[in-house]
Simulated scan of single mutants.
Amino acid sequence: MIRVLVVDDEQLVRSGLRLILEAAPDITVVGEAADGAAALVEAYRLRPDVVLLDVRMPGTDGLTAAPRVVAAGPKVIMLTTFDLDEYVHRALRAGAVGFLLKDTPPRELAAAVRTVAVGQAMLAPTVTRRLISSFAERGPARRTAARQQLDLLTDRELEIVREVARGHANAEIARRLAMSEATVKAHVSRALAKLQLANRVQVAILVHDADLL
């Protein structure tokens, strides 16, 4: 069972998300919080697998809370509207693994939670990948630093993380590169360890920063 904590300052939104998620047989909402400070307390108390964290809330907002909640252990998905700004990029760098629009269809919401729970990032073409490509810092110094960091990888690992940055899941990468999904997963894990990164979104940002696409 996937344990989810829902964080939003609007009770109606929290109730709606709970209703949608608990209709799935493999997902349970273990708690709710109305701001980032309460989210951090509940993340440590309830130990959820996934936290849905609203970007903007009174008091401690989602952007401020994101790195602290990530440090508590759960995977974090930001809840937001379509009008995203560069501050959301801070949350990606802090370890959030993706974004959901608040009007995401119920089936897609549950699928997103499942995807994140097993360690994959939300690189939806309409949201997260667009953010990464729009807000990656591609100045000369940043590009040089990113490329130096990526030099730690083997040629095969670099090939695979470039596919990750394009938003491809392990199964799709395996098909494109004619290798097993287990091998792709192993390469991704080794790349994350070498680069000292927490998740696939951070890898994708690094590749974009290096301007390797």
Rank of each mutant, 00 (worst) to 15 (best):
L19Y: 10
R18Q: 11
A124Q: 07
S15M: 08
D26P: 00
V51N: 00
E10P: 00
Q149D: 02
A146R: 01
P48G: 05
I132E: 07
A165L: 00
L192A: 02
A111M: 02
R18I: 12
V113K: 06
I205G: 00
K194N: 08
A66F: 01
M78F: 08
R107P: 07
R130I: 06
D35R: 03
V6C: 10
D61E: 05
L100G: 12
D26V: 01
T104L: 10
L153F: 09
R143C: 02
G98P: 05
E32N: 09
R147M: 00
L19F: 13
L123H: 14
L40E: 14
E159M: 04
L153Y: 11
L12N: 07
Q120M: 06
H187T: 13
L150Y: 04
V161Y: 08
A23G: 05
R90C: 02
Y44H: 15
V201C: 04
T28G: 01
A91Q: 11
R162A: 09
A34E: 14
A169W: 00
Q196E: 15
G31C: 03
L158Y: 13
L21H: 04
T115R: 09
R114S: 05
V201E: 10
A191W: 04
L46D: 00
A210Q: 00
A178K: 13
R107F: 03
V161A: 12
A193V: 11
D85E: 06
E86L: 08
R138G: 15
V184K: 01
A178L: 14
